[in-house]
Each structure stands twice: as C-alpha cells, then as structure tokens.
Design a protein around this nucleic acid. Structure first.
Length: 230
DNA sequence: GCCCAGGTGGGTA
DNA sequence: TACCCACATGGG
C-alpha cells in the first residue's frame, strides 16, 4: 500500500485519504496497469473507452498473437487486418485509426522509439498526446501515469461519480478542476495515484455499477459530509 | 430486445 | 458552454 503521510490535512485531503484507506482495506493492492510493456499499456489505454476489462485484454491478446504489439509491427498491419484483430474491443475501425495515428506520430516525432517519447517532459508530452486523434485527457493521463510513471492523477467517470457520492466534490465539477483538486491534496506519488485510480475502478465495477443508489456501500458510511458548495 | 460501458470527436444551439 | 450522437461489440 502506498503510504499517505500528511501534515495538517484539510477537509478535502482528509476525505480523500479516508476514502483511499477504506478502499485499500477492502480490496488491497491492485497492481495496475496489467501491461507487459509500455507499448502494451499505451495500446490498452487507447482501446479502453467503452470496452473496459476483458474485451480490451482479448483484443490485446489477438494483437500479440498476430505479432502486432510493437510500434513498427503494428504499423505494418493493414487497416482491415488491424480492425479485425481489435474486434472484441468495440468501435474497432475507429480504434484501428487511433492506434495507427499513434504509431505514425511515434515514427515521425520520436524515431519510432517509445522510450524516447516517454522521456519527454510531462506537460509537453501531454500536449503532444492530446493533439492525436482519439486521445483525450483521460487516455493521455493514463499513458503519462502508467506508461511514463509520471505523477498525474487519472480522472474518469468513476472518479467523478464516487467522489461526488461521497460528497467530496460536486457532481458537475469540471474535469480539470477535479484533477487539480485531487492533485493539490495528495502526495505526487505515481504509485499512489496508480493504486488510487485502480481502486476506484474496482469498487465502481463491483459495486457502484450494479447499485446506482449506493445501497450497502462497502466503504465506510461516514466518509461523506455536507455537500460541497459550487 | 434493451441498455449501458474506465472516452473521444464532430455537430448543433 | 452544454448537449446530442456515432463509434460497435458484449454482457447483464
């Protein structure tokens, strides 16, 4: 478990820490991201939208079987072949275009070398990733955190839903503001951010998704407080 | 058979 | 800024 040593924690910080500790007690270390290589992590992040979990893993396994899990080999797969391999992940033609755009960018800007790309300064790399088709804030941040090891908190729909239900933030809080709030209140530790995100996904999938009214929340009921203003 | 899913991008008002 | 919809398969 990543440690949280905090001096004089404020209300938001205290609630974020208590939420993390409750999740960690309940589920333990998650060991994300389940990628065998940095490139596999990037591929998984690009395939993830609307196809979480086993479908993405199946698509990656098919890519691996076809020898397509390196940038240069993936670039050599034809669009039709690539789309066919991605079938289980859904939206496969769109995702094939996105993967192709990523390896093309890698070849053009970083000599095809992912390691070189991952050494870029965080803010510059984030801008480059966001400029690619199909890569938005969540996908870019997942790559920064899990492939590049940068202390960037990945905010997704689960993060917003759970933090809102525990009254740590308002449900309508903007993505950038939510990310800034979390990062201003937790130590900038990639291992901690990675575990926290993974734990949020875990509880959301196992509990929140099937019980939208939070009946029998596995987390402590006293995590909340008064609804935040704004 | 219907609804939704760890998101993104294009369109519209 | 806010909302709608396509992307497309798979599971509940």
């Amino acid at each position: 478990m990543a440690r949280l040593a905090l001096k004089r924690p404020g209300p938001v910080r205290r609630r974020l820490v208590r939420l993390y500790e409750a999740l960690d007690r309940r589920y333990g270390p998650q060991g994300w991201w389940p990628g065998r290589s940095a490139f596999e992590i990037v591929v998984g992040a690009i395939l993830a939208p609307h196809a979480a979990g086993p479908e993405v893993e199946r698509a990656i396994a098919r890519l691996r079987s076809a020898g397509g899990l390196t940038p240069e080999r993936l670039a050599r797969l034809g669009p039709g072949r690539l789309a066919t391999l991605l079938g289980p992940s859904g939206a496969f033609r769109a995702k094939a275009r996105r993967l192709r755009a990523f390896v093309d960018y890698l070849a053009m800007r970083h000599d095809g070398r992912l390691r070189r790309m991952l050494r870029r300064p965080t803010s510059g790399l984030r801008e480059e990733l966001l400029a690619l088709p199909g890569i938005g804030p969540e996908t870019a941040d997942a790559i920064l955190l899990y492939a590049a090891g940068r202390p960037v908190f990945v905010v997704d729909a689960y993060t917003r839903r759970i933090l809102a239900r525990h009254r740590i933030v308002a449900p309508t809080v903007a993505h950038a503001r939510l990310q800034a709030l979390i990062m201003a209140n937790l130590p900038h530790d990639p291992a901690l951010f990675g575990e926290y995100h993974a734990l949020l996904v875990r509880v959301a999938k196992e509990h929140c998704r099937t019980r939208p009214r939070c009946e029998g929340c596995p987390l402590r009921p006293d995590l909340g407080g008064r609804p935040p203003r704004g």
